[in-house]
Every structure is written in C-alpha cells, then in structure tokens.
Amino acid sequence: MSNKKIVVIGGGPGGLETANALARLGYSVEVLEKEEVLGGHIRHWYKLFPNLKDADEVIDFLKERAKNPNITISMGEAMSEMTKNGNTFEIKTSKGRDITADVVIAATGFEAFKAERKEEFGYSVYNNVFTSVEIEEMLRSKGTVTTREGKVPQTVAIVHCVGSRDEKVGNFYCSRVCCICGVKQAIEIRKLLPDSQVFNYYMDMRMTGQYFEELYRESQEKWGVHYIRGRVSEASQTIDGMIQIKAEDTLLAKPVIKKVDMLILMVAIEASPSTAQIAKQFDIEYDYGFIRSRDRHNEDQYTPVDGMFAVGTAKGPQTLKETLADARATAEQVAEYLKTSSNE
C-alpha cells in the first residue's frame, strides 16, 4: 500500500493501538519499545477506573491485535537519538541500529512524579508512605494491601495533588487522573479490608470523565470513604511507627491531625525523559516537557514538525480511554497525511 517507513516510538497503549489501527488500514509499522515487554505503565496497573476492569484485559486486547503481519515490534530497543534530515527522520537506537523513517509517531508517554521531591510527605523516609503506583503494583502482585511490615492497615490516608497543581515542584497543571484513581483505590481498600477507614485529603475532587462522579458517589454511599477538604502540609512518623498528617479541614476552618497506618501519595503525571527529549530537540515543547500538538482542537494528533505525530500522554496527562481514542485518531491522521499531497 505504501512503501513509506512508519516508526512508532513506544509500545505502551498509545503506541500499540496506533500501530494496530495503522496495520489494519494496510500500513507497515515498526514499534520501538525500550523495555522487554509491551504495555507501558498499564502493565503495573491492577484495575482500571471507572468500572474496575482488569488492566490485563486491555493489555491482552492490545497485544492480540498487535499480532499482525504489518507490525514489527523491536523489543528492548529505545530511540536514543533522532534528527530530521530533509523529509526523513534519522533514528539511532540503543542497539546501534540506524533507521530512516518518513513518519514518526511519538508515543513516548509519561513518568510518575518522584514523590521524594515533596520532602514534607516523607516518602522513602518513613516506611509506610506509598505512591499510588506502588499500591497498584501491590494489589496486582499480592491481591491485597498491607503495610511494609506486612500488617493489615486500619487507617489509610490518600493525599491528592502530589506533584500536581504545585508551584513548588514547578508543575502548575492538573494531572487529571489522580482524583478518580484515589477514589478507586479507596474503594479497593474498603472492599478488601472492611474494617479499615480510608480518608481522602483533597483540594478539589475533579470528576471529569464519564462515570467518575458515579464512582465518587459510590465510594461514599457503599464504601463509606471519608473526604477531607484540605491539603496535607506535612507528614511525620510517630513513636509507634504510624504516620501523622497535618491539614486544615478548610470547610470547618480548623487544623486537623490524624495518625494513619498507611499514607498513599497520588503522584502526578510528568513527561517521560524521551518525551522531554523529543519536545526539546525539535523545539515543540508545550510546557513541562510535554510535546505540543499543532492545534489543540483541529490538528491535535499532528506536531508542528512535518511528518511527526504525537499520541497519548506524550502530549500531557490523559486517561487510558482518551489515549486509546487518541491512538485511533492518530492512525487515521497519519493515513490522511500519507494519502494527501505528495506524501505517498
């Protein structure tokens, strides 16, 4: 159909589904995945909001679709350098291979905010401070939630906006997925540990997706999850090994303190190093290292660089659902690009 070389950088959900859709439109695609496994971050996830579907269901679906003669997957091979030379892109891989591509799709994704940067929350200082990602991994591997000492927690606090909406770490933006992830993890903990108490400390609960608000309601109605409107200012460890947190209950206008067995930090979505590298090198940074699309509404799958497209969280925080839809749209836009003008 086309002898144009299409390279997708990144084998997470966005990259894989773009390749899948392109393959079904008849295009040959090569996917570069730096890890030895496909699936990106989602393979660490346990269940997905808002319907608590197994994350594996999505990965299996994407991998099954990727078994297509039009798709070549180069595993354990990362893009180390990329330059544009006339109409083509010269990619150097970590295995020392040189690829010349006509179309590049940046599916380089995100990286979870490093919680150590918010020293006041005591991550990696106190034992029982966890990130939201660690909770997903724990649920996935153990099927339950315990403290680092293996004890069943009685009280758990979830801190929202860790690394998001926070000038102190240089991130003004909202990561968009953590509010609902906090609601989801609170429900999961309450389901598994009926004797536990879970508290969400939030600045705003942003239920932006379809059925998010319903899950929030369910967390209150069915699972008795508590919500305290106030930003946690600091965490410290008590003599009995619990984590004590300070906040203001802003709706009561009083400072509150609470001891918990586990503290979960809802970490932000930040641009991955590869995303930031591409954004910087091609001078197409939106902000915070994410890649800028050509036009937010009309050409959101194109980047300002001719022949380069971007999909998913390489452009900023997105839900998995949005990323998959974006991937299918990207494939369509690539096909349109190759069919129009003299590109094909």
Binding site: R231, V232, S233, K246, E248, T250, K254, P255
Partner: peptide, 22 residues
C-alpha cells in the same frame, strides 16, 4: 485556592483562632 496548607502548618493557628486562609 483555599487549600488550607498554610493553616495546617501554622504554629499560631494550632493554639489561637488565627486562620490565615480564612
């Protein structure tokens, strides 16, 4: 944005009716 982080960390606010957010 009235998050209350200031009041939570305020020493004066722990002992008096001073609430900087408010």
């Amino acid at each position: 944005i009235s998050c209350g982080g200031c009041t939570a960390t305020c020493t004066a606010g722990s002992f008096t009716d001073f609430n900087i957010r408010r």
